[in-house]
Amino acid sequence: MIRVLLADDEAMIRAGVAAILASDEEIEVVAEAPDGAEAVALAQAHRPDVALLDIRMPRMDGLAAAAEIRRTVPGTAVSMLTTFDEDEYVMRALAEGANGFMLKAADPREFVIGVRALAEGAAFLSPRIAQRVIAKMGAAGLTRRTPGLDRIGVLTPREQEVLGLLGEGLSNHDIAGRLFLSEGTVKGYVSAILTRLGLQNRVQAAILAYESGLVTRP
C-alpha cells in the first residue's frame, strides 16, 4: 500500500485529489493538512511514502514544509501541487530538491501515475509543468547544450544511458527492464550519477538530461 499525505489550504482541492487517489486500491491517503506546519507534523507522525504539498499555504508555505519534511522524514518523496501562475515557485522548489510537480488542473490520471512513480523512487513532472520549467530555464539562459554536455562528460556511456532514461521519467524498475539490468544495479548507477554530478535528486537529473540533449521531448 502506498501511503500519502495531502496538504492544501482549500478543502475542495484536498477532497478532489483524495477521491482521485482513492480510485486506486493500492493508494491510501493517511493524513490531510490545511497548512504547511500541520503537514510537517503529520509527515513526522505518519511517515508517508509520498507527500503532496500545495505551494501556497498559511502558517508555513509548501516550499518550507517540503524542506522540513525532506530533512526530518527523508524516506518521504515530496511533490508540489502547483498552478501555471507559479513558475517562480516551481523553480525554487526544483532548486531545493523537490521530487515532483503536479498540476492541479491536470488529467486526474496524472495524480495516480505520479504518486506511483514517486513511491517507486522515480521523479515525476506533469508533462505541461516539465515543458514550462524547461522553457523557463532556456529563457533564463540556463539550458545550453554545450555546458550540459560538459557536465555529463564525467559519466561513463552506460551512466549517460541511465541518465537519459531518468530524463524520460522512468523508475528504477523500468530502467532495469529497458537495459536488462537488475534493479540493484540501476540503483547503484543512479546513486553514482547524482553523486558525480552534484545533484540532489532525480528531478534535477532529469533537467540535466534535457539540457545535455539526452532527452529532447518532455
Score class of each variant (00 low, 15 high):
L5N: 04
D8I: 08
E10G: 09
I13Q: 01
I13M: 06
R14T: 15
A18C: 06
A19Y: 03
I27S: 00
E28P: 09
V30K: 02
A31D: 04
E32M: 14
P34T: 12
D35G: 10
E38C: 09
V40L: 05
Q44R: 15
Q44W: 06
L53I: 05
L53C: 03
M60Y: 03
D61I: 12
L63N: 01
L63P: 00
R71W: 06
T72K: 09
G75A: 09
S79Q: 00
M80D: 02
L81D: 01
T82L: 11
L94Q: 02
A95R: 14
M102L: 15
M102F: 04
A105Y: 01
R109Y: 01
R116K: 13
R116I: 09
L118I: 10
F124Y: 15
S126W: 00
P127I: 12
R128A: 13
Q131P: 05
A135D: 10
A135H: 08
G141S: 09
R145C: 07
T146P: 00
R151S: 05
R151N: 08
G153R: 12
L155K: 01
T156S: 15
R158K: 14
E159P: 00
Q160P: 00
L163D: 03
L165F: 05
L166G: 01
G167I: 03
N172W: 05
F180M: 15
T185G: 01
V186T: 04
G188F: 09
A192C: 08
G198Q: 03
L199K: 06
I207N: 02
A209C: 10
E211T: 15
S212L: 08
G213N: 06
L214M: 10
L214K: 02
R217K: 10
